[in-house]
């Protein structure tokens, strides 16, 4: 489905602030697969998602969706294929617009004719049916401004909106990180349900080891702009949270193994 080959991005090249945010990343996602990305802060997780969404132009690399290279597409063009949810519950919606109006905007995503917030009666019925599945009672509040909802409710709606048109690819960037634990668990469960029911291909960044173990069928670990671990199939089934912590540990250890350590071991590891 999604294929990323040799993707690199350096911010502020050749300055003291140079950051190699992505270093020659290869990643292929099968259609209908659900992959979580974990990794320390600044390891390049968001940058990888942004590169796929077209937020910036990478220095190197090829991204294809179903065999079509999308490198030349704008972010707006890619939005027809890609649904996104960010960490900030206020990012994906317009606070002063009603729930229904926000959803209508999402339903028309990628359409070229001018946007209108008019909500037809038929659309309203369709919306009420879908919102019902969130089991948050929001179907009765469709005309309320979205700004009056809690973070968890907004994130659930954002998720619903992002997947309304069955995107080829769903990108989730720590979309439960800003929520209280109870809401986070609820949104995580909803995420699992929607991805499964709609058979979506999803790439989700999470800070939660527990989510990484429970939700997806594959876990990719990033460190310093590279993919350093990839747990799939049987490996993925077997691992638990302590194994992931051990893996973090090993990655960090490798980081500390520099040339002075090599010299030390040349003298003492005989």
């Amino acid at each position: 489905m999604l294929s990323i080959k040799g993707l690199s991005k350096t911010f502020f090249p050749n300055t003291i602030n140079e950051v190699k945010a992505l270093r020659n990343v290869d990643l292929t996602l099968e259609a209908g697969s659900f992959t979580c990305i974990i990794g320390t802060n600044g390891s390049g997780k968001s940058t990888l998602l942004n590169a796929v969404a077209g937020t910036f132009v990478p220095d190197n690399g090829v991204i294809t969706v179903d065999g079509t290279a999308i490198g030349g597409w704008t972010e707006y063009q890619r939005a027809k294929l890609i649904g996104r949810v960010f960490q900030n519950p206020f990012a994906g919606t317009a606070a002063e617009m009603s729930i229904a109006e926000n959803i209508v905007m999402a339903m028309r995503r990628g359409q070229s004719r001018p946007l209108t917030r008019a909500v037809t009666t038929q659309a309203k019925k369709e919306i009420a049916d879908k919102v019902c599945m969130l089991k948050m009672g929001l179907e009765d509040r469709l005309d309320n401004p979205i700004g009056t909802l809690s973070g968890g409710q907004r994130q659930a709606l954002t998720l619903l909106m992002a997947t309304w048109l069955k995107p080829k690819l769903l990108l989730l960037d720590e979309h439960t990180a800003a929520l209280d634990p109870k809401s986070a668990a609820k949104v995580a469960e909803l995420t699992r349900q929607i991805i499964r029911d709609e058979k979506l291909t999803a790439l989700m960044v999470t800070h939660s080891m527990q989510q990484a173990i429970e939700l997806p069928d594959r876990i990719v670990m990033m460190h310093r702009g590279q993919i350093v671990e990839d747990y799939q199939k049987e490996d993925k089934k077997r691992i638990r949270v302590p194994d992931l912590l051990d893996t973090f540990d090993r990655v960090q250890k490798k980081e500390l193994f520099d040339e002075s350590v090599m010299q030390l071991l040349a003298e003492q590891y005989v």
Binding site: R250, Q252, K253, K254, E255, L256, F257, D258, E259, V261, M262, L264, L265, A266, Y269
Partner: peptide
């Protein structure tokens, strides 16, 4: 020959702390 850096890191692990 001996593995060079960084290949050596695939042969030996160092506690690092």
């Amino acid at each position: 020959n001996s593995p060079a850096f960084p290949e050596i890191r695939d042969w030996l692990s160092f506690s690092g702390e």
